[in-house]
Simulated assay, not measured.
Amino acid sequence: MTKLFFSEYEEAEPSAPLVIFGAGGLGREVLLLLQQINATHPTWEVRGFYDDQAPATPTVAGLPYLGTSADLNATTEPLAVAVAVGSPVGRASVVRRLTAPQLSFPVLVHPHVALGPHQRIDLGEGSIVQQGCILTCDIILGRFVLLNLGCTVGHDAVLGDFASLMPHANVGGAAQLGPGTYLGTNATVIHGVHIGENTILGAGAVAVRNLPANITAVGVPARAISSK
């Protein structure tokens, strides 16, 4: 797992060029996050959006639609990319397609989220942490993890690559989420519980015991309703 410690990404090159892959609602929210970062410390020159499905209009939130993943791979200059795709499967698919060596995937953290060296938090490349999130200490987030608005992550938790937490999801201390895990809005994983790879925990569900890989679980307590 590739991880970046906070002190390694705290200072980015001023006005570095960046594009957003994903021209939908999450893409506009990530644009807002970038604007909030820039308002505190000018960091990114956001040039526009890429998406393999063209939006209905030539601009998104006032910025141009620039093309597909193939067009992005063809860029000839170093370029940072924020992958704004909510689905773990979809986000992993996009990352697999973006293969050009000049592309990089910075960690993006809202400026009001407390993250300092004393918290001992490792964040993998491409991870996005939105406004209102609380992370305590000794936490590992894998590559391209998404923490949407107002999520909490407790001590010693481990979130695998491409895990996605929707708004106000909660992960207890020492919990572990496998790669590709998806937690719906207000879902909760209590202390020490393990969630298997690619498992979906539905909105408002509470996982009070370990859940296997490749299932969808809902309810309180969470129970499997389907498997992949």
Rank of each mutant, 00 (worst) to 15 (best):
M1C: 14
T2F: 12
K3W: 12
L4K: 00
S7G: 12
P14A: 04
A16V: 12
V19Y: 01
G22I: 04
A23T: 06
G24T: 03
E29W: 07
V30S: 01
L31A: 02
Q35I: 00
A39L: 02
T40Q: 15
T43C: 10
W44A: 06
W44N: 04
R47D: 09
G48I: 01
G48N: 09
F49G: 08
D52M: 00
A54V: 11
A54R: 14
P55G: 12
A56R: 13
T57A: 13
V60A: 12
T68S: 15
S69C: 11
L72W: 05
L72P: 07
T76Y: 11
E77Q: 14
E77V: 15
E77T: 15
L79A: 02
R91V: 08
A92Y: 10
A92I: 06
R96A: 14
R96D: 14
T99N: 10
T99H: 13
P101W: 05
Q102E: 13
Q102C: 14
S104E: 08
S104C: 06
P106E: 00
L108C: 02
H112S: 15
H118K: 14
Q119D: 11
G124N: 09
V129F: 00
I134E: 12
T136I: 10
I140S: 15
L141F: 04
V145N: 02
L146V: 03
L147C: 06
N148W: 02
C151M: 07
C151D: 10
T152Q: 13
H155F: 11
D156I: 05
D156S: 09
A157S: 08
D161V: 05
F162I: 03
S164G: 05
S164T: 07
S164Y: 07
N170E: 11
V171S: 10
G172S: 04
A174L: 09
G178A: 10
P179H: 06
Y182F: 15
L183H: 02
N186E: 13
V193E: 00
I195H: 02
N198Y: 02
N198T: 12
L201F: 08
G202K: 02
G204L: 05
G204A: 06
R209C: 09
L211A: 00
P212K: 06
P212V: 00
I215E: 02
I215Y: 08
A217M: 07
V218L: 14
G219L: 11
V220Y: 03
A222Q: 08
A224S: 15
I225K: 10
